[in-house]
Design a protein around this nucleic acid. Structure first.
Lengths: 205, 205
DNA sequence: GTCTATAGCTGGATAGAC
DNA sequence: GTCTATCCAGCTATAGAC
């Protein structure tokens, strides 16, 4: 499975094969079929195992997050580290492989779900007791965060400077939100009242 | 080039070949090499042409956007339409193909840049005269929006319901932002002053 | 469980007829 | 510009020795 992931990182989904994977660890090509039945089966197994490893590694960090900007910081660390390890390219390959490889599509969805659950837990913690909590769909936002992160990862794959710029802009935006958020109870109440009115009239989806 | 994109949509980067592309239009496999030198060359040419077509089609819509939520709406329309046409899967294939196919990486970056420019123009229009305009990095945010959109597209590829949830949550968030934004000059001035102070002390990146 | 060997296929790419 | 024919490399998957 290690060989599968590293072959995928190096050669992409279109270059990977039972042979290239086996060569990665100096093993024999036929073993892939003996153990995993098909190449796709091996890739799927490797994907699930890999996601588990990554999640374990970051669960602690997630638990320590106390603000949106801290979440972004963890995201950035994760981004840098995972990129160095090549796991970003890996995700791209799985997403691409989802077209035409149903088994791969399934495990990729499962992997993203696992990340989303983790993020939703963080968001729930952050917004417990927040005046606007009732107007936010945290499950949906967690999905948006996961999706956005995936997008940033892939964006960096083809335009590193652009991704940097995006992260910086988001950090600045996070700062803004925090400031607005910290304006105090008077503003907070005003916002709350206005939101309630507006939400009613516009019919929040 | 039409054949190239449609083959890519149907079979993914790992399934595409000079033969499968040629078969798509009942042409001969050797023509790929005659006209484009390599398969990768054909894919790159097709990518650029496709991006141009998409952009033309949405430039008008972008020009009519008057708020963040309208931008999201256009994004959602774009999302639905492009997904129906299979252009989402296409983008995933290009991003994945960027690993190991340098020419593909280059044109993919170029395509994303073109979208980002378009979005930055919209953001600039939206935030001209806005009290917080000076604290926002619009170029970076445009990149973040493009990246986020790509992520959502790919997310939907493996988990359609999840992407729906993300879009809904973002819409709700957009509503919130608009409400806060419309609180009037008093709050607006307070935010501005506070932000200025905070930005100075924390040193905005 | 791991190997060799091999069948059968599909791929990129070229030469050359038309 | 489009085709046929072809070379050769690489692929999945299996059979069977060890």
């Amino acid at each position: 499975m290690d060989a599968a992931t590293s072959a995928l990182k190096r050669q992409g989904i279109s270059g990977v094969s039972a042979r290239s994977i086996a060569a990665e660890v100096g093993a024999n090509q036929a073993l892939v079929f003996y153990h995993f039945k098909t190449v796709e089966g091996l890739l799927a197994a490797a994907a699930l195992r890999e996601t588990g490893l990554r999640l374990e590694r970051y669960r602690e960090r997630f638990a320590e997050v106390r603000s949106l900007r801290e979440l972004l910081t963890v995201g950035q660390d994760l981004h840098v580290q995972e990129r160095e390890n090549g796991n970003v390219a890996l995700m791209a390959q799985f997403l691409a492989g989802a077209t035409g490889y149903p088994q791969l599509a399934e495990v990729t969805a499962e992997a993203l779900r696992l990340w989303t659950v983790e993020i939703e837990a963080v968001l729930t913690r952050l917004f417990t007791g927040h005046p606007l909590a009732e107007f936010l769909d945290l499950a949906g936002l967690a999905q948006a965060v996961t999706a956005g992160f995936v997008g940033l990862e892939l964006y960096e794959g083809v335009d590193p400077a652009g991704a940097q710029g995006a992260f910086a802009a988001l950090d600045q935006l996070g700062l803004l939100v925090e400031v607005v958020d910290g304006l105090g109870p008077v503003v907070s109440r005003a916002v709350r009242a206005t939101v309630r009115r507006q939400v009613k009239s516009s019919g929040a989806e």
